[in-house]
């Protein structure tokens, strides 16, 4: 095994941050404070997570694992909502929770992972964060599209279209845009990027041929999550732009 990170080597690796700080200071980017806070936060968060995960994995209790998974989903939903103009935690939660649970369930049923904390927790994190990015993008695209295509939506309503018919191009654009980064990622995996899961396994000494199998699984699960989450977010989200009388809320 070639893993030799210890506190001393981490300390020296920390000098790399000094280079980043030096550039920020020299170029007057005004990022020094932000960067210091980011580094301190990253270190503290990771140290806490490390200890918490060690404890939880050691405990090996299903209910604790599920609580942690739920916490990850809640956090992802909150962040996706916070980044969007559509301030609906309910929709964000529905999209991310359902996307994560279906994908996670599929992986467990397929026998790809087991219901044990050291597999469920990291995989939930990967899935939920991908769902969070997809939902955030979906909401953002939808907000912009409702501005750009407002006139067309109004005209479709005046022709007697139901909300879905009036909004279909916006719904499709939102889902498509939300899924695009995951699809692009899948296209370049192994050529441009050696993603974290696979790199981590190879780093830990696992045969690359075995490591890629995990990465293939990750590719499948990210695609499924992004599509389910953005589909749900778009189909629940578009209704928020209308009132009960099927009028655009922004109409005056």
């Amino acid at each position: 095994m070639g893993i030799a990170v210890n506190n001393q080597s981490l300390f020296y690796a920390g000098m790399l941050v000094v280079i980043a700080l030096f550039i920020a200071w020299r170029e007057k980017l005004g990022l020094d404070k932000d960067m210091i806070i980011a580094v301190i936060r990253a270190v503290i968060q990771l140290v806490i997570v490390g200890y918490v995960l060690r404890y939880i994995i050691h405990l090996d209790q299903l209910w604790i694992t599920l609580i942690i998974a739920a916490l990850i989903i809640f956090n992802a939903s909150y962040n996706a909502m916070k980044r969007s103009a559509l301030k609906s935690f309910k929709i964000s939660l529905a999209a991310i929770a359902i996307g994560t649970i279906i994908t996670l369930g599929g992986l467990i049923l397929a026998g790809a992972i087991k219901l044990v904390p050291f597999q469920i927790i990291p995989i939930t994190g990967m899935i939920a964060s991908n769902a969070m990015i997809a939902v955030g993008l979906c909401f953002k695209t939808m907000e912009q599209a409702f501005k750009d295509q407002r006139q067309q939506v109004v005209e479709k309503l005046t022709l007697g279209a139901d909300l879905k018919d009036a909004t279909l191009p916006i719904i499709r654009l939102s889902i498509k845009t939300a899924m695009q980064p995951t699809i692009d990622g899948a296209k370049t995996v192994g050529i441009v990027s050696l993603p974290g899961m696979m790199s981590g396994l190879i780093f830990a000494g696992v045969d690359p041929v075995r490591a890629i199998k995990y990465q293939i699984m990750v590719t499948f699960m990210l695609l499924s999550t992004a599509s389910i989450a953005s589909f749900i977010a778009a189909y629940l989200g578009y209704r928020e732009y209308f009132n009960a009388r099927k009028q655009l809320k922004s109409m005056n």
Binding site: Q151, Q152, V154, E155, K156, T158, L159, G160, A161
Partner: peptide, 23 residues
Amino acid sequence: ILQLDPIKYRREVSYCVQQPTLF
């Protein structure tokens, strides 16, 4: 009008807006 189904209503009362866009 508040008691009427807006979709059905708009099919009966059709509105052509100023400078319409084509789909």
